[in-house]
């Protein structure tokens, strides 16, 4: 569980770390769209080179970046295998009733690469951006939509609090689980229905505690004069600088290259 690197921020002071979170979020979004816009292998050159460039500049170790893939290896493999079997075409191998086709293999590889690039790209965002500036970025990006009823500030506050309490609640889960195991509870065996039933002694105390914490926190926030997003200032103001502009420009070049590759 602790091996998941997605969402784990590695503090640093690299060029990528210092970018405005809005830049990183927007570029990551555009990068994702680009991945889906590509239709052949040559096109991948552009996002791959961009990703390598960004990784080098971020000074994040490649090993760490790739570790983010670990929990998702199963999904990537499944994508590859399913595609290999499902697509009709030239049969190159027969496996019982299933045919592996050349087109299938190609399509499977294409999809797998897309997934890998998608995951490593987004991991790079979360590895170089602290949760708090990520939330800040999202809040600022959404704030123009406040007028049409998007609760930008509230969403951001919810995310911050969730991030703050995840470690606390994980610790608490571990403690309650152990306390119930000390009373003979069994969380590991039995069929699906039994297992779900056995979770009650864990979930009830966990919910009660979460509600109590929520209550306490609400009181503490009010005591510190929290009254929503109106008239609030921020410690860290976001500012777009020259390097943000440069980042947009560089990415645009790569994106144009990628789109052009569609017409090869």
């Amino acid at each position: 569980m602790r091996e998941i690197t997605i969402g784990q921020y590695i503090p640093g002071n690299s060029l990528v770390h210092r970018l405005d979170p809005r830049t990183k979020i927007l570029v990551t979004l555009a990068y994702m769209i680009l991945l889906f816009a590509l239709n052949n292998f040559y096109g991948y050159i552009f996002p791959v080179v961009f990703l390598i460039l960004a990784t080098i500049l971020s000074r994040i170790s490649v090993r760490y970046l790739l570790k983010g893939l670990k929990p998702l290896i199963f999904i990537i493999t499944l994508t590859f295998v399913l595609n290999s079997f499902m697509i009709k075409g030239r049969v190159i191998y027969e496996l019982g009733p299933l045919d592996i086709t050349y087109e299938g293999l190609v399509q499977g590889a294409f999809m797998a690469i897309r997934l890998i690039l998608l995951i490593t790209g987004t991991s790079l965002l979360t590895l170089t951006t602290s949760p708090i500036s990520l939330t800040d970025g999202i809040e600022r990006l959404l704030s123009p939509f406040k007028k049409v009823g998007v609760p930008a500030h509230e969403l951001a506050m919810m995310m911050t609090i969730a991030l703050r309490f995840i470690p606390t609640l994980l610790e608490e889960t571990d403690k309650i689980m152990k306390a119930q195991m000390a009373r003979g509870a069994d969380f590991e065996s039995g069929n699906l229905i039994n297992r779900a039933k056995n979770l009650v002694p864990l979930l009830v105390p966990l919910f009660i505690s979460a509600f109590r914490r929520a209550d306490d926190l609400a009181m503490a926030m009010e005591a510190r004069c929290y009254r929503g997003g109106e008239n609030r200032t921020r410690l860290k103001e976001l500012k777009m600088t020259f390097i943000d502009m440069a980042t947009f420009a560089v990415f645009t070049l790569f994106a144009i290259g990628g789109i052009a590759s569609r017409f090869l």
Binding site: S130, P131, I132, T160, I161, L163, R164, R212, R213, D216, L217, A220, M221, R224, C225, Y226, R227, N231, R232, T233, R234, L235
Partner: peptide
């Protein structure tokens, strides 16, 4: 149950931010 932010200094900032 009274610390709101994920970084110490951000949490200390919470009150003054609310005060504008």
């Amino acid at each position: 149950n009274q610390i709101v932010a994920t970084i110490v200094e951000e949490d200390v900032a919470f009150g003054p931010e609310n005060l504008g």
